[in-house]
Design a protein around this nucleic acid. Sequence first.
DNA 1: ACGCTAAAAGCAAATAATTTGCGTTAATGG
DNA 2: CCATTAACGCAAATTATTTGCTTTTAGCGT
Lengths: 198, 198
Amino acid sequence: MPAKENLRPGGRSARVQASVHNAVRSLLKTMDRADVTIPLIAAEAGVTPSTIYRRWGELQELLADVAVERLRPDMLPIDTGSARGDLEVWTEQYCEEMSSGIGRDMMRDVLAAQDNANACKCDAFTREQIALIADRAHARGEAFPDIDAVMDGVVAPIIYRILFGDQPSIERVRNLVTDVLAATPTRQPQPASALISG
Amino acid sequence: MPAKENLRPGGRSARVQASVHNAVRSLLKTMDRADVTIPLIAAEAGVTPSTIYRRWGELQELLADVAVERLRPDMLPIDTGSARGDLEVWTEQYCEEMSSGIGRDMMRDVLAAQDNANACKCDAFTREQIALIADRAHARGEAFPDIDAVMDGVVAPIIYRILFGDQPSIERVRNLVTDVLAATPTRQPQPASALISG
DNA sequence: ACGCTAAAAGCAAATAATTTGCGTTAATGG
DNA sequence: CCATTAACGCAAATTATTTGCTTTTAGCGT
C-alpha cells in the first residue's frame, strides 16, 4: 500500500515510475479525472496494469503521489526587499495556485489518499518557503513571525476556505498578512489602547 | 452524479436511502474502509448494486454523503455562562471530535468527493454553532468576534493541522481562542441602539 | 567484473466491480 | 383514481482488479 521511494530506486523501477507519472500528468491534461483509470494509465505508460496495482494499490494513491510532486515549489520566493513585500507576494501567488482548478484537484488528491504522508510533505514544502522568507527578513534585521504563526494566520485560513467553500478574495488574503505581521514585533499581549485605536 | 435530495423524496426512495446509509455506517463499524465496496453495501442494505451506482455514481460520493450526516452537530453548544467559556469548551470538543480517527475519516470522505457541496455543508454546520455562541454572547451584552474571524483564527488552524500534519495540542487550541477573543473589541459589531431599533 | 539473490515487472487466467438495456414498481400530479 | 415517469430490480455485457507463476534486472558480495 505504501507509495514509492521504499526499496530499489534503481534503473528499471525508476524508469517505470517516471513513465507512469508522466502518463498520469499527460492524461490529466486531456481528460476529466473521473475517466482516468489504471488500465488507461498503464497503456499510456507502456507498462502492465498489475505493476501499477502492486506498486500503488489504488488510483487514489498514485494520484496523490503525482500531485505532491506538482505541488513541490519550483522556485524561491520572490525577493521584494522587505519582509512584508515578500510575504504578501508569496501569499498571493500561493493562494492563486491553490485555488485554481488544478491546485484544488491536486490538493484533493493528496488529502483523499489513505496514506497521509503526502499531505505532510505539502505542509513541509510550504513551511520551507516561509522559512526562506523568514531567513531573509532576519538577515536584513527585520522582525518576522514564527513559522507556526504564519501557518495558522495565513496559510490555514486560505486552505480552509479553498477546501470548504469558495475562493478567498485577494483583499482577505492581504488582511491575513497584515494581521500576522501586526502581531509580530512585540510578541506580547497588546495593550487595550492599541486595540481601540486599531 | 449528484448525491441525493434532488427528486422524488417520497416513500420508497427515502427508504432505500436510509437503508443504504445504515448499511454504510454498519459496515464501517466492523471493517476497514478500504474493504467496503458497493456490492457489499448493497447486499447489507438489501438493494441491488445498480441502484447505488445510479444514485451515487461512486463509492466516494456515497461515503461523503454518509459522512456529512455524521458531522452534523447533534446538540447545542454548551452554555458555560460566558462567551470565552462557551468558545473554549466548544473548540476543545470540536477539535477532539475532528482529530479522532472517525473524525479524520469522515473529513477525508467529505473532501475526497468530486462534488464539494458536502464540504460546504460542513462549513455551514460549524458556522451555525459559532453563530449560536455569538448570539448568546450578544444577548448577555458581551462582545464577540465576527464568525469569519473565528473561522480564520480558530477553526481553520485546527482543521489545517489535522489534515496536513498531526493533531493540534490542547494548549495551542486554547491559545487560538485566547488570541481571537483578544482581537475582538476592535470590531465591536453592534451598539446597543442597533439592537433596540432592530 | 562476475555471479547470486530477491525485488520488481510481465503475462494470463480467475475473480470482482461497474455499466447498461429493459421490464416492473410505486411516487407525484392532475 | 388514473396517467406519467422517476427510481428500482434483474441479468447480461463490459471493464477493472487480483493472483499465481515466469522472467527480468538492481543491489550486493566476492
